[in-house]
Simulated assay, not measured.
Amino acid sequence: MAIQPSILVLNGPNLNMLGTREPQIYGAETLDDVEALCQTEAARLSVDLEFRQSNHEGELVTWIQEARGEHDAIVLNAGAYTHTSVAIMDALSAVDLPVIEVHLSNIFRREPFRHHSYVSMVARGVICGLGSHGYVLALQAACRLIDAANRPGA
């Protein structure tokens, strides 16, 4: 029996405030709602899912580093660290796992400083502007990348 693939979903600063923080931008769903949606999709895709959130850059870096050998892909909404963290970019590059970057809002329809992403420089794909459904699409994309990597001759 094959071991199920595992995906780590990481959420950065202020995402714990979903549902109350700027609902006109981020919607009314809470992070618990997003996690429940992800767990449902993970079960449908037959993958293990670990879902975490931190407001601390160093903790996110540590979790990314620990993902190597524990998970097969990372889905990351780095929040504001998307636009500022070389440390997160370097950690993602070092673990050599497929990364899907996700954002609830369309960062390209917002302030100009949000248009740059350090995460995008190492991510295999970016999904933004689709609200919590972006996480579902990110999980599906991560599963496709995992499947492709596990095919004979890959």
Rank of each mutant, 00 (worst) to 15 (best):
M1G: 15
M1H: 13
A2R: 13
Q4E: 14
Q4C: 07
P5N: 12
I7H: 03
V9W: 04
V9I: 12
L10P: 11
L10D: 05
N11K: 01
G12H: 05
G12A: 11
G12I: 06
G12R: 09
P13S: 05
P13I: 13
N14I: 02
L15K: 02
N16W: 06
M17F: 14
M17R: 14
M17G: 00
L18W: 08
G19I: 08
R21G: 04
R21S: 06
P23Q: 05
Q24F: 02
Q24S: 15
Q24I: 01
I25S: 03
Y26V: 02
G27C: 12
G27I: 10
A28H: 14
E29A: 13
T30I: 09
L31F: 07
D32N: 15
D33K: 06
V34N: 04
E35Q: 15
L37R: 14
C38F: 09
T40C: 06
E41N: 03
A42M: 07
A42Q: 08
A42D: 08
L45Q: 13
V47R: 08
E50R: 13
N55W: 08
H56S: 09
H56K: 12
E57Y: 11
L60M: 15
L60K: 04
V61W: 02
V61G: 00
T62W: 13
W63T: 07
W63G: 09
I64F: 09
Q65L: 14
E66N: 15
R68W: 08
H71D: 00
D72M: 05
A73H: 12
I74C: 07
L76K: 02
A78K: 07
G79Q: 01
Y81K: 00
H83T: 10
T84M: 07
T84D: 00
A87N: 06
I88R: 09
M89D: 03
D90W: 05
A91S: 13
L92F: 11
L92E: 07
A94Y: 10
V95S: 09
L97E: 02
P98C: 11
P98F: 11
I100V: 15
I100A: 08
L104Y: 05
L104S: 02
I107R: 00
F108P: 00
F108Q: 15
F108E: 09
R109E: 14
R110P: 00
R110Y: 01
E111T: 00
P112T: 12
P112Y: 02
F113P: 04
R114H: 01
S117C: 10
S117R: 05
Y118T: 06
V119Q: 00
S120C: 04
S120F: 02
M121P: 01
V122S: 02
G125I: 06
V126D: 00
V126C: 11
I127T: 01
I127K: 05
C128F: 06
H133S: 14
G134K: 10
G134M: 10
A138N: 02
A138T: 03
L139T: 10
L139V: 09
A141I: 12
R144G: 15
L145C: 14
L145S: 11
D147I: 01
D147T: 12
A148E: 15
A148K: 12
A148D: 15
N150Y: 10
P152D: 12
G153M: 03
A154L: 03
A154W: 06
